[in-house]
Design a protein around this nucleic acid. Structure first.
Lengths: 243, 243
DNA sequence: TGGGATTTGTACGTATGTATA
DNA sequence: TTATACATACGTACAAATCCC
């Protein structure tokens, strides 16, 4: 129980805001009880008593933690420990990109830089960690892209899965989540300034080149293939900058 | 004004939750009016009318956006467009690391991987973009580390500034903010499992080596210096894993 | 210096929507 | 279907912080 001296009437000295105390209290509760993602938290009313705050304060605190995916609130069911995903990063970054058309170009370029740096910088470990299963998964995804491109369809979801699969051999959850987060940011922000015919066939081929490099186990070639993959995006951003 | 059809009594069909509607409404308001960070938003009561929701709902929505640093609320003053920093990323990631002692080791290792990958992968552009001012700044920071290490003091803040200064020549805000964010996560999570004598002198020397490589304009040497810089952290994480 | 106006923060009561058993 | 537990929403009143005159 996170009792906070509400018994003595008039405790005029109170460090910060009530809401922030409750936020700290809930975090504390999770840590002290060693809860894991998915574990249930006390109900709102219980939290009110425990921390000695009103429902309003508790609810606002929970909303703050909910936005960070530290807690997960299910209507009519209860409150649970969240999964602490990077959804908040996506929301925040993506919205920044939507603010103005200058900002969105800048951000897009920077996101592409980071994505390329990570994929290239980890290319050695990617090749080293690749299993046969990874390779076939990657090959099938590239094949799917080619097929859909030939049919004139888009393949955003396949592209996302491709870049995730590329990073999977690393066994690094954080890299995986960053990959997904930046991919999403790009997917959200890019359409706002691109009245451009999508070159699906070229894009698909560039992914095939990545697969080939991976299969060959050639790191230098993989780095080049990754650079080539991001080149069209860069030119389309540069083109938008001039316009 | 973001009027949302509250005029007709009984609008039984309401897509989602009231709060989420308000969240969308506020985002919309910012975008439609092309507001920039720091610009004022309508007061709570004005938002209530505009979106046709109660003050509680509006406040919860604002708290959600506030957690993402999309808005910035100042008690007794008003609500403003936020700076969309990566503070949410730090909070979320850092707390994940505090959950359990296994998680914190895993996360620390992954954070170090990402930091090293970014610094090494961008080493070429770092050297290319370095001005004399950057070099002297970096040299002074390393010097400060050496001095403090000799005096037996720690220099966390200097270390943070060093890695930011290293990335500054890139002119990439996102990289800069990620650098700061991951640095903070490491600074928060690392102490939870390190009852270890800090080797300040070694750490300072490793930073000096980075400065020397930068001054020499030698990318390969810089990459090595960066790897060497993170090596002690890795061993201390590995040591904790065994224990 | 001070006081009043504005704005956000907290508290409480009540009613409603939602999921589970 | 009913009952129960829970989150969601609304409204009001008051406290606290900030600003301006």
């Amino acid at each position: 129980m996170a009792q906070i001296d509400t018994g003595s009437l008039r405790t005029p000295v109170r460090a910060g805001l009530r809401r922030d105390e409750v936020v700290a209290g809930i975090k504390d509760y999770i840590l002290r009880n060693q809860l894991r993602p998915g574990d249930p938290l006390p109900t709102e009313s219980e939290l009110c008593e425990a921390v000695g705050a009103s429902r309003s304060s508790v609810r606002e605190a929970v909303k703050t933690l909910s936005a960070l995916d530290i807690v997960d609130v299910r209507h009519g069911h209860g409150t649970f420990v969240g999964r602490m995903s990077l959804a908040a990063l996506v929301e925040s970054l993506a919205f920044r990109g939507l603010l103005s058309s200058e900002e969105d170009q800048r951000l897009l370029g920077q996101v592409v830089d980071v994505r390329q740096t990570l994929e290239q910088g980890l290319s050695g470990e990617i090749i080293a960690g690749m299993t046969d299963e990874h390779r076939t998964d990657l090959a099938e995804l590239a094949e799917e892209m080619v097929d859909r491109a030939a049919a004139g369809e888009d393949f955003l979801d396949v592209d996302r899965e491709f870049h995730l699969t590329l990073m999977r051999p690393l066994g690094n959850d954080l890299v995986l989540q960053l990959t997904e987060a930046f991919w999403q940011v790009q997917a959200i922000v890019a359409p706002t300034l691109r009245p451009e015919p999508p070159e699906h066939i070229l894009t698909a081929d560039l992914h095939v080149a990545i697969v080939d490099a991976v299969k060959a186990g050639d790191q230098a070639r993989l780095r080049d293939a990754i650079a080539a993959h991001y080149a069209p995006v860069r030119t389309s951003i540069a083109r938008a900058t001039k316009a």
